[in-house]
Design a protein around this nucleic acid. Structure first.
Lengths: 344, 344
DNA sequence: GCAGTTACAGTAACCGCTTACATAAGGATT
DNA sequence: AATCCTTATGTAAGCGGTTACTGTAACTGC
C-alpha cells in the first residue's frame, strides 16, 4: 500500500514545485524567507493542486489548534446573538475557528472534556459555563482563558469582562420606588449560580434598604433567564390562591421580561398601570414590546469583542489587565410608568 | 531532547497500566474487546493521570475530526438562537464538536477555507452561507453536508431541510387583502440570494395576482433580514418626499418587523389602524411586540435538529432522503388588524 | 582575500494517536 | 490429535505537517 489517503499533501506540492516540504511549510506559515521565484511557483502549484493544509496534522506538529472555544450553559436566550456575533467577528478576523459548546453538568462522565487544552488554544467561559473546580484546574495548568459575565473566585486570577450590575440596578429600583411609588417589587431572578443575577439581587436589596422597604423573600421568583420559565413561574405565582400583593416586577433579563409581560397580561393586569415591569440587557426587541420596556442597556457585543481580544492578547503574550467591567445605562421607556423615552 | 511536550500521552497510560498503546486505544474507542481486568486498570490509570486524548492526533490518525461545521452568512438575527440551540443539542449528544463560522465573500483569499473537509466531518450550510460553485466542488468531492433553509441548485443532489414558504405566504397576504382590505402591500425582503426571501416573494406575488392587484416594484424594499437595516430603509422610504402610498407591510422575517414597527411609529403611523404589519418566523418576542405580531410560525429548532440528524445519518451511512420541507402555520395576532389571537 | 554574516533550502525526527498485521492461548470441531 | 476459530494483546508503520539542525552560496567589512 502506498498512500491511504487520496488528498493532496505538502509532499505533493513540494515535489511538483521542486522544493522540499520544509520550504513549502515555511512559505505557508510565512515564518522564514523564501525566494520570490520559489514563492511564485508555490502559489501556482498550490492552487493547481487545490492544496489545503490538513488542520489536524498542523495542530499535532505545531501544538496549537487555531481554534478557541466558547463554553455556555445553554443557548436559550436572545442575549446570545450579540454575544456570538461579537466573538465570531474577532475570532474569524484572527483566522481562528470557533467551537461552541454547552456544558451539561450531568454529562461529564460520558466523554473526555469536549473542549479544552487539546482541542482549543484558549477558552471563553460564559457565566456558569464551568464549575469553580474545573476553572481552578484549567487555570493551574496555565491554560489561556477569559471569563465573560463572571468574575473568578477570589483565589484565582483569571481575566474577566463583565458589566456594571449593582449600582445600575440600585438606580433602576430606586426609580421604581421614588418616581413611581412602587413598594412591593418582585425580583424575577436568573439561575442560581448566575453571577449577574446575584449582583442584580444585591443592587435590588440595597435599593430596598436605602428606602426603608423590608426585603420579602416571597417576592423572589426564579425565572432562569428564560422566557418560558419566567412565564410559567409568574403564572403559577399569580394563580396559586395565596395572592401575594405586588406592584412591580424587575426581571433580571429582557428575555424573561417577555414571559412576565405575557403572564401579567394573561391574568388581566395592565402594565404599567397595575404592575410596572423593568428588565435588563436592552435586547433588540425591548423598544417594541407592549409596552416598550424600561431596561438597562448592557453592551453585550462589546463585552464579547473585548473578552475575545483579551484572550488573543494572552495567546500572543501581550500584557492584559485583570478585570474589566463595562458601564451600563438605564433606558427609560413606558413599562416602568414613564411617558417619554430617555436615558440615564 | 526526550519529550517536547509535558502532557500525558497514551504511552504514559500504557506504561503505567502495563499494556500496549494499542490496547489503550482500543479500550478508549471501544472498538475491540479488552479483558475486564485490563479495563479496570485502565480506568484507574487514566483518571489518576488525568489523561485526555489529544484531539488532533486522533484526527490525523483516524482521518475523522469529530467536529461538524456550521456555515452562516452572518449572526445578526434572533432567529439564530433556536437554530443554534437545535444544532448544538444533537451535535453534543453525538459527542461531536460544533464549529460555527460566518462566511464573508470578500475574505476568501486571505486564508484556506476556514472550515471544510480537513477541519470537519460534515457541514451544515445555512442559506446563502456558500456560493453554488463552492457547493458543487465540495459535493463533487463527496463531502457530507446538508443545506438548511436552502435547496440545492438543480444539478446537485444535496440533502436539504427547509420550511414551506410559498403557500403560507400566499395565504398570509390574501388574508391582508381579503379580510383587511389591503391593496398596497410593501414587501420588506431579505438578502438578494436568500432563498426563503425569494420564495416568500413568489408567494407574495401570487397572492397579488390572484386578487387582481398589479405588482408594484416600488413596494419592494430590502431590509436584509436585519432589524436596523429594515428600520433605516423604511425610514428613508417614508421620508424621501415621493411618498408612495401603502397600507400594509409584509416583512420577510420577524426581526426586520421590529425595525418596520419602529419606523412606522416614528413617522406617526398607527399599526394596524393606518398600516398593517405581518412577519415571518414567530420568534419568541412576536406575541409581545406592540402590537402583537401576526406572523408565520416556522419550526426553526426542528429544522435545525432534523438537518443535523440527517448530517449524522450521512456520516453513519444510513439512508437519508432528499429534500424535507417542514410545515408552517399562520399565527394571527393584532398587527394585521385582527382582534383575537388564533392559528390557521 | 578571508572570516563572519545572511539568505535560502534540505533532511529527518518528531507530534500523539489509529490500525493492519502478527502472535499467543484456549476452546470447539471433526 | 490436528485444525480452525475466537479472544486478547503487541509491534510498528503511518497520518500530514513543523522545525531543529545543517549546508551552501552570496554578501559583508576590513
Amino acid at each position: 500500500m502506498t498512500r491511504r489517503s487520496d488528498s493532496v499533501t505538502i509532499y505533493d506540492v513540494a515535489r511538483e514545485a521542486g522544493v522540499s516540504v520544509a520550504t513549502v511549510s515555511r512559505y505557508i506559515n510565512r515564518n522564514a524567507p523564501v525566494s520570490a521565484e520559489v514563492a511564485e511557483r508555490l502559489d501556482r502549484v498550490m492552487s493547481d493542486l487545490r492544496y489545503v493544509p490538513h488542520a489536524a496534522a498542523r495542530h499535532l506538529a505545531s501544538r496549537k489548534t487555531r481554534v478557541i472555544g466558547l463554553l455556555l450553559s445553554n443557548l436559550h436566550n436572545d442575549f446570545f446573538v450579540p454575544l456570538l456575533n461579537g466573538i465570531e467577528a474577532v475570532v474569524s478576523k484572527k483566522g481562528y475557528n470557533l467551537i461552541v459548546a454547552t456544558y451539561h453538568a450531568n454529562s461529564r462522565n460520558d466523554m473526555p472534556a469536549p473542549i479544552g487544552p487539546h482541542n482549543t488554544d484558549g477558552l471563553l467561559i460564559f457565566s456558569d459555563g464551568l464549575v469553580d473546580e474545573d476553572l481552578a484546574n484549567l487555570n493551574a495548568s496555565g491554560f489561556p482563558m477569559v471569563l465573560v459575565h463572571r468574575t473568578p473566585p477570589p483565589s484565582l486570577s483569571i481575566p474577566s469582562v463583565t458589566v456594571e450590575n449593582i449600582e445600575i440596578t440600585r438606580k433602576l429600583i430606586e426609580h421604581l420606588i421614588q418616581v413611581h411609588g412602587k413598594r412591593r417589587i418582585v425580583f424575577m431572578r436568573g439561575p442560581i449560580h448566575q453571577e449577574d443575577s446575584n449582583w442584580r439581587e444585591v443592587g435590588y436589596k440595597s435599593a430596598l434598604a436605602a428606602n426603608d422597604i423590608a426585603f420579602d423573600e416571597n417576592l423572589m421568583l426564579n425565572g432562569e433567564f428564560e422566557r418560558d420559565i419566567a412565564f410559567q413561574v409568574l403564572n403559577d405565582f399569580l394563580g396559586n390562591g395565596r395572592q401575594v400583593a405586588f406592584d412591580a416586577v424587575f426581571t433580571g433579563d429582557d428575555d424573561a421580561a417577555i414571559g412576565v409581560l405575557r403572564a401579567l397580561h394573561k391574568h388581566g393586569y395592565r402594565t404599567p398601570e397595575d404592575i410596572a415591569v423593568v428588565g435588563f440587557d436592552d435586547l433588540g426587541f425591548a423598544p417594541f414590546l407592549n409596552p416598550p420596556l424600561t431596561t438597562v442597556r448592557a453592551p453585550t457585543e462589546s463585552v464579547a469583542r473585548i473578552a475575545t481580544e483579551r484572550l488573543f492578547d494572552i495567546l500572543e503574550n501581550k500584557p492584559s489587565d485583570g478585570a474589566v467591567v463595562l458601564p451600563t445605562e438605564i433606558i427609560f421607556r413606558h413599562s416602568c410608568g414613564c411617558q417619554f423615552e430617555q436615558k440615564l
